[in-house]
Amino acid sequence: MKKRKLRGIESLKSKYGYMFVSIWVIGFVLFFATPLIQSVIYSLSDVVIGGETSFAGIKHFKMLLTEDPDYTKNLSASLSSILYSLPLILVVSLVLALMLNQEFRGRLFFRAIYFLPVIIATGVVLKYISGYGSTTDKVSESVTDNMFQVTDIMNVLNLPAGIAEYVQTIISNIFSLLWQSGIQIVLFISGLQSIPSSLYEASRVEGASKWEDFWFITFPSLSRVTLLVAIFTMIDQFTSSTSPIIETAYSKMQTGIYDVSSAMLWFYFLIVIAVMGVFLILYNRMLMRRWG
């Protein structure tokens, strides 16, 4: 008798669950799943505006990979930019989050400054201030020139060419890097807040240094947040409208070439999803080995 009543509540609850979620399910079917399938169909057919679409197989993919001279170049540019930006964004945002998480005078002031990129950097303005547009190279140029004479420092330090070039790339992109780290800082701070303070108290009693605190408490506790930040950064970078692949696909779409642009994006995102999958597997395995 009791069991039956319980089951009654459970089924009632699941009914209410469906009720709340249904609002999103309708949206998902209408504004996500349907267009997603349609875009697969587009990429596999010849689309004539105002006319009939006919099935074309993998013609467009073949064309992009073998004939289009720019596609593979754009593809590698879009994918490889993550290699230098992801580690940098992770380190920069973690260090800044650690600093902003401490108790000190002026903390709110600095937080307000460092959250500013969250507000502005997600937008079109970024492309003007970081000099993506060709006519506006001048802005970022004048900005970096004013700040410090990069080449002078490089000459003094006499670094090997490879490292010097890497540092040069970082410095000329320092704006976009810092300005892209806004949400990452926010995520890391909220991760830091969720670490129980009793852990630190215990390690203090045991006589651990701040450095050991970081490596044995903070860093392992942040492993999940770090994964989240890494995935967020990757999605942000791969889908940003400044990525060369997306830029060309956008401009193709605006001129009405839907089939080729869909194929462009689909091939790109299959690779992106594969990259993310490999990353997730590697990360999980690494975690397993290190922390059990």
């Binding site: 504004f31 996500f32 997603l36 875009s39 587009y42 779409m253 642009s261 999803i273």
Partner: peptide, 14 residues
């Protein structure tokens, strides 16, 4: 994971 540009053309049609 899937960005809006993938869906935009079918959505416009719809």
């Amino acid at each position: 994971l899937i960005p809006s540009p993938m869906l935009i053309v079918p959505l416009m049609n719809n």
